[in-house]
Nucleic acid binder design. Structure first.
Length: 685
DNA sequence: GCAGTCCAAG
């Protein structure tokens, strides 16, 4: 053009600049900017707007703002562009400032539809309800509400700001509704955790004759997963296959999530394996699938594999894999991950730091958990993790301290916090404090919550108030397996074995499936009552319920046989085990040998216990006492010396609370030594 | 220029 002698004018430059902007040719663009400036064309509003877009698109945000500031004339496009740029950069406050300026300072230029639908998502991202209402007010004032896109954006923004009621109100008043509107209202509900409402909206959408699209499906699948409606999920899966949207990566990812949350781990794996291309979300969903469905090792392994596939773990990956480490007790893997988290800068992510706190707590390192907690941002969940963590240690009173600290820092305790402190009171056998909390719960109407009621059962049974526990138990509408188990354990502990066994039978009639703990409860009741036949019957019954006996079940059986004096049978049971016997099993045998004075078998059991728990003084004392009773003084002395040489420390004296605690812990399957040892220990010490 | 997938505590 120039070569042919025609001079470009102010109508030419916007096109040239637009070209530079679209192809991110910043250097060419700057050259043109120079020319424009030289000829004074930059005063032209169109030229100014294209310069703004050029710098904005090429990532030169500061230069873009400079252009905007220096513009002599601005139109609505200039304002909309600068608002859009701020929004892309995440400068939410600047977006709002420009919007407000536009409304107030510039009377000729009125924000239009484009402005509104640019600003509203910014309100949504920053969850700024105040700003959303300001924009909404403006929309009403200038009559923009009739526009479908404005309505949709409002429905969305209210949902993201946490007010599904406002979403619904806008939605109901909209003149025109599209699938986008339906999708927006569905996500509003699901964002607030109102999954049933989301499902209702989805059904209404179909009733209204609107066809769900891929966005609808990818928003609905997590809802179905949360509600555990895998059947409906499968139907939606079928729908996706028929309509050909199943190859959409969002859909595939949410299918993995839906199947994972419904406990259908294999179905999730099939989707994952079939996927053509995967992104980080696909891998994360799959890690979550393994972690949530108790394939903890596979979860850890998959994080390795994803890196072999060139994917870098992010904050979500870490929050997914840490619970798996916690459950496996993989402290060292957890520490490695922690180091990695610090290196890549995710340590300040709330979810990540909470997952780390929980990992350390579950691995039994409360002091490390506390370290993470103290240097991180905290929310209710952070406190709850530690409250629950300490509640299961000998330092349960720390739970109560944290509970007060949490309230002092202005956080409202929720159901989980209460479950934690009730559990702490139960471990402290602190009935007075427990009752106070119970009263508090009633005032808050939390007491009817199943998990809360179950922890109250635990409190009262541990404190020996089975009468109060029974009162609560009878009032629970839909008792779950834990409610029944706690009561069976409670009666078993009290020695009311008949009631314990009756409850076990009643549980089945109530339609509640037995779990592993139910059998521990009933077997220990049988062993305390010397009910060998019943015990054997229940032990055999486990197979019918597809429950693999664990160490604890075998320990109960050894205890059952041993207490009844069938020491050889108990020893045979141990010899025939396909798993390596643990301290509980040997401990049960040793306890029984002590009762019947069988020194040889006792010695055999103790040898294994010394190997498994060399620092534990109780076993040495027990064996030494047995030799002493058999008047085998030399051997008694030798065991005492062995104990000294290994540095095993005597436990401080046991109060009845600690004994009760050990008894209960034994019954519910904690790895604390067997019942008798607790009593003997107290006696020997 | 409006709608979408993965995340911690019981």
């Amino acid at each position: 053009m120039i070569r042919s002698g025609v001079m470009p004018d102010d109508h030419t430059y916007p096109f040239v600049l637009k070209g530079c902007s679209d192809f991110l040719q910043i250097h060419k663009g700057m050259e043109v900017h120079g020319v424009v400036f030289k000829f004074g064309f930059d005063r032209d509003v169109y030229v100014g707007n294209t310069l703004l877009m050029l710098y904005g698109n090429c990532g030169f945000f500061v230069d873009a703002i400079k252009v905007f500031d220096e513009m002599l004339e601005r139109d609505v496009v200039s304002w909309n562009t600068v608002i859009g740029l701020c929004s892309v950069q995440g400068f939410y406050e600047e977006s709002f400032r420009f919007f407000k300026e536009m409304v107030a300072v510039v009377p000729v230029i009125r924000p239009n539809l484009v402005t509104v639908v640019s600003v509203l998502p910014v309100c949504a991202d920053s969850e700024n309800m105040v700003m959303a209402r300001i924009v909404h007010g403006y929309v009403l004032k200038v009559g923009l509400l009739g526009h479908l896109k404005v309505g949709n954006a409002l429905v969305d923004v209210y949902g993201k700001c946490g007010s599904e009621k406002d979403s619904k109100k806008v939605f109901d008043e909209m003149e025109e509704i599209s699938e986008v509107s339906w999708n927006a209202i569905i996500t509003s509900f699901s964002f607030r955790g109102l999954y049933t409402d989301a499902l209702d909206a989805f059904r209404s959408m179909i009733d209204a004759g609107m066809k769900p699209n891929s966005v609808t499906v990818s928003s609905m699948l997590p809802v179905l997963g949360e509600l555990g409606l895998s059947k409906l999920g499968m139907e939606v899966h079928g729908f996706s296959l028929r309509t050909g949207i199943e190859s959409d990566i969002f859909i595939a990812n949410s299918l993995i999530d839906m199947y994972a949350k419904s406990g259908l781990s294999c179905a999730a794996s099939i989707i994952f394996n079939k996927m053509g291309d995967r992104n980080i979300v696909s891998w994360n969903a799959m890690v979550a699938n393994f972690a949530q469905n108790r394939h903890h090792f596979a979860a850890v392994e998959l994080v390795r594999q994803m890196q072999a596939h060139g994917e870098t773990p992010n904050n979500v990956t870490f929050t997914n894999v840490l619970p798996a480490c916690a459950r496996l007790g993989f402290l060292n893997v957890g520490k490695e991950i922690h180091a990695r988290i610090i290196r890549v800068g995710y340590a300040f992510d709330l979810f990540v730091s909470n997952a780390l706190t929980d990992m350390y707590s579950k691995c039994g390192h409360l002091s490390l958990a506390r370290n993470v907690f103290s240097i991180s941002v905290k929310d209710k969940v952070s406190y709850n993790i530690l409250i629950i963590g300490y509640s299961q240690t000998t330092n349960s009173s720390e739970s109560l301290n944290l509970f007060s600290e949490m309230r002092l820092s202005g956080m409202m305790p929720d159901i989980v916090s209460f479950i934690g402190i009730i559990s702490a009171c139960a471990n402290l056998a602190s009935i007075k404090q427990g009752k106070e909390i119970h009263g508090h719960l009633i005032r808050k109407l939390f007491h009817t919550h199943l998990f809360v009621a179950n922890s109250l059962l635990d409190l009262y049974t541990k404190c020996g108030r089975i009468d109060l526990a029974t009162k609560i138990f009878d009032r629970i509408q839909h008792k779950d397996v834990a409610s029944w188990n706690t009561m069976i354990l409670g009666y078993g502990m009290l020695g009311d074995l008949e009631t314990a066994i009756n409850l076990f039978e009643a549980m089945k009639e109530d339609g509640v499936e037995y779990d592993s703990v139910s059998f521990i409860a009933v077997l220990s009741a049988c062993s305390h009552g010397g009910l060998i036949e019943k015990g054997n019957k229940y032990f055999k019954k486990m197979k019918d319920h597809n429950i693999e006996p664990t160490h604890m079940h075998y320990a109960c059986m050894v205890d059952l046989l041993g207490r009844a004096g069938q020491l050889e049978e108990a020893a045979d049971l141990i010899r025939g085990l396909s798993i390596k016997p643990d301290a509980n099993i040997w401990g049960a045998l040793l306890g029984a040998c002590r009762i019947y004075g069988n020194v040889d078998l006792g010695h055999w059991a103790a040898e294994h216990l010394f190997e498994l728990k060399p620092d534990h003084c109780g076993y040495y004392i027990l064996l030494s006492n047995m030799y002493a009773e058999a008047e085998r003084w030399d051997e008694a002395k030798r065991v005492r010396e062995l104990m000294k040489s290994r540095g095993a420390k005597k436990n401080p004296g046991c109060s009845w609370v600690q004994i009760g605690d050990q008894v209960h812990a034994f019954l519910v399957g904690e790895k604390i030594e067997s019942l008798d040892n607790g009593f003997w220990l107290a006696e020997s010490d």
